[in-house]
């Protein structure tokens, strides 16, 4: 998804009001943007806090800023800059994190993004954008270009090639059907585990429909309630811990309501992962089943 993201961003930067800030990362990925807009890309070096504050500073001067890094660096390391500088001021900075979930499996626990939703979704203005396929990613970039705001874009490390490009439209709180089935019982997934969600369906819930939800966040909880109540059962699937994750978000949407929809959640095992392995291996061992 990384290369597709850069390709789409390069295409979108017609008015040159986009800045791309990188964290000394992105070798063999960011070059197309750099070649086309050499004065709109800056390497902040290995300094996440300055990078995030600087991004807010640029954004405060009527520019849209994309900060590109690996998920663990661009979240917890500079959490206060995200809170005070970006979210508090409601500035159009998109934090682009590569290596969602266990994407950097064999780099070890320091590089796993298992708590990033928990952090990013507790900011009032921040939206989570977690595409599950290339179609969703293209639509997300289109959405954020038209609606610049504090946002967290969580990308899969791998550059998967979809067989066929299909134009879709994503919006906050909107769900997108992936597989037809029971209209009242659904599997709902966000981010890079669509294939896993489909596997779970085929193995255990053959009649359920499967939906994806690429954009969500604190400010859409009330809107989403109305959608949830249409279903009898929702099974959430994500590559994140349960605590502070997508499934928890759905459950929080229902707090203090009389909505009877049954929510079940599938997530990454809630413990520190000390073993190394490929992302597929780790996902198979510790991921949703």
């Amino acid at each position: 998804m990384r290369k597709l993201f850069i390709k789409e961003l390069t295409k979108a930067n017609k008015k040159k009001n986009i800045y791309l800030i990188i964290n000394d990362l992105g070798f063999n990925v960011i070059e197309p943007f750099k070649d086309k807009f050499p004065d709109r890309i800056f390497n902040a070096g290995v300094s996440e806090q300055n990078m995030m504050g600087m991004a807010a500073g640029i954004a405060s001067e009527k520019c849209n800023v994309f900060v590109y890094s690996i998920a663990n660096f661009s979240t917890f390391r500079c959490a206060e800059q995200i809170r005070n500088d970006i979210d508090y001021h409601n500035l159009p900075v998109t934090i682009v994190s590569v290596g969602s979930g266990l994407g950097y499996g064999n780099l070890g626990y320091t590089h796993h993004a298992l708590q990033d939703y928990a952090l990013m979704r507790c900011f009032s203005n921040m939206i989570i954008m977690s595409p599950g396929n290339n179609n969703e990613l293209v639509s997300i970039i289109n959405y954020i270009r038209k609606n610049p705001q504090p946002s967290y874009l969580r990308l899969d490390k791998n550059d998967q090639i979809d067989k066929k490009f299909k134009k879709i439209k994503v919006e906050p709180g909107k769900i997108i059907k992936l597989v037809n089935g029971n209209s009242k019982k659904i599997i709902l997934t966000t981010g890079n585990v669509q294939n896993l969600a489909l596997k779970i369906r085929n193995k255990k819930f053959k009649n359920h429909s499967v939906y994806s939800m690429p954009i969500w966040g604190m400010k859409y909880k009330i809107k989403f309630r109305n959608l949830i109540k249409k279903f009898d059962e929702i099974i959430t699937v994500e590559d994140h811990l349960h605590d502070g994750g997508f499934g928890s978000w759905i459950k929080e949407c229902l707090v203090n309501t009389n909505i009877k929809t049954k929510i079940k959640s599938k997530f990454i095992k809630d413990s520190v992962i000390n073993k190394v392995g490929s992302s597929d291996y780790l996902l198979n061992k510790y991921g949703p089943k």
Binding site: A56, G57, E61, Q81
Partner: peptide
């Protein structure tokens, strides 16, 4: 807005860079 120390300078650098 500031209040937590060490934030104003990165913000200013961003503005100056722009």
């Amino acid at each position: 807005s500031t209040g937590s120390l060490g934030h104003g300078l990165p913000i200013s650098v961003g503005k100056a860079l722009k």
